[in-house]
Structure formats: C-alpha cells, structure tokens
Amino acid sequence: MTKRLSPIKLENYKPLREIVFETLREAIINGTLKPGERLMEVQLAEEMGVSRTPVREAIRKLELEGFVVMVPRKGAYVAGISIKDIADVFEIRAALESLAAGLAAERITEEELEELERLLVQVAECTESNDLEKLIEIDTRFHDILYKASRNERLVQIISNLREQIQRFRSTSLAFPGRMKETLEEHKKIVEALSERNVALAQALAAEHIENAENSMLEALREGNISRERNSITE
C-alpha cells in the first residue's frame, strides 16, 4: 500500500485513539483508502507515526460502524458497498431526518433559521457555477444545523454516522443531472416549513429530500457510475 496518510498531529482535548480513528474514517470516506483495500496495522501505524495499539482499536471501532470488515485468516479490509446497503441506509435516514426536521420545527432558533437562509444563497451560487465540491460542503453544513436544531444529541449522532457511511458517494448523487437545482428547491421548502413551525410539513419535506437523493444515487448506479456489488473480498 502506497504511503498516503500524514503523521498524526496531537490535539490536547482528544485521546490519541480517537484522532487515529477519525483519520482512518476520513481516509475511507474521501477515498484515500478504497473499498476492498487491506488495512495493515504496521504500515498504517508507521504512516501516522503512532504505535499499533491505537490503530488496532480504531479498526475495531470502524468495523462496528460498518466502514471495515474482518475476513477470517485474511485481516481487515475497507468495506465495499452495494445497492442494497445504500437503500438500507437511505431508508433509515429518511425516517430519522424526518424526525429531526419535525423536532427542529419546534425548537429551531431565529439565529439558526438565519444561518440556513444564508446557506441557501450559497447553494444557489454553487448551483449557478456548478461548483460540486463547494456544494457538498454547504449541504453538509445545512444538514448539521438542521440536526443541531432538533436539540437531540443521540439523534444527531445516529444520523451523522449513517450519513458518513455513504459520504464517499455523495458527489455521485449531487452530480446527477438536475440534482443540484432540485436540492436547492428542496432546501428552500424545508426552511420555509421550519420558519412556519409546521412540524408535519417539515417532516414530510425532509423525508422526500432524502428519498430524492437516494433515487439520484440509485439512478447513477444503474448507469454504472458505481459498482453494483461489494468488492468480493468484503463478502
């Protein structure tokens, strides 16, 4: 495996094992560590400048979160993902995002609503300039504010974990023809429902937004932009 990970920079407020875990998870999400790739503890530890212990702990945690699979007598591998996996994640996300939006409609602050409005302007700019990378960043911030506004930390953690499991494929969904513009319109409707404190409407719109994102991703899959099945090593 070619060296691609940077040495760990210690942060006083985080345990080393947590920093190693986050580093490896991000490498999987952004594609630095690819589906089906074997994770060698010794090499990863050397690249990050740490011992094998925090790497081993991080791999175990990544397995629990679905990012890594352990193959008997072979070792740890970056998990692949299939159409069924994506559909399962989106099915759960649609229900949880609906719950978060409903709670947010009751609990969101005026400051948070204003921040969402500002993000809508930025989404429109990205859509106009076709800046996909920036749009993904703003879309993530938009949903993070929505989750925070639910005032339910456990719910935020669960949704964030699900989202991260398919984060590496978000660009495929948003790059699908017409999806960027649709995302903007869907976000606008959600913000309007939140502003009106309309719980039922916010729930329905949030669920619809996630379902539309799923449809775009699955359509991209059908066109062959992503492998239909897991890498065989992860089965």
Score class of each variant (00 low, 15 high):
A104Q: 03
T53A: 15
L146M: 08
Y77R: 00
S150V: 04
A94Q: 09
V50Q: 03
R52W: 11
R52A: 11
E128R: 14
S129A: 15
R118K: 12
N130L: 12
S150P: 05
R56C: 08
E57P: 11
V55N: 02
E46A: 15
K61D: 10
V123S: 00
E110G: 12
E112I: 02
K74Y: 09
L135S: 01
E112F: 05
T53L: 15
E117V: 14
T109Y: 12
V78M: 00
L132K: 08
E153Y: 12
S82P: 07
I108K: 00
C126W: 05
F67H: 04
D144Y: 01
E65G: 08
I83P: 06
R154C: 10
E110K: 13
G66C: 09
A100K: 01
I81K: 08
A105F: 00
L96N: 00
M48T: 02
T140L: 02
V50H: 00
E91L: 12
I83M: 14
A124L: 11
L113Q: 07
D144H: 02
G102R: 02
R73A: 14
V69L: 09
F90C: 01
G80H: 03
A76T: 02
D144A: 05
A101P: 04
E97P: 06
M48L: 11
E112V: 05
C126P: 06
I108N: 00
H143K: 07
E111G: 08
S82M: 06
I136C: 02
K74D: 08
D85V: 04
E110P: 07
D144E: 08
Q122T: 11
S150E: 05
L132Q: 08
G102A: 07
M70Q: 12
A100V: 01
V71I: 13
Q122C: 07
E117Y: 12
E137I: 12
L62Y: 00
R107N: 15
I59E: 04
G80I: 01
E111K: 15
R151G: 10
V50L: 05
I81W: 07
T127I: 11
I92F: 06
A45T: 07
M70L: 14
G102S: 07
L64I: 13
R60L: 14
E65P: 05
F67K: 02
L146A: 06
I81C: 14
E153C: 09
A76E: 03
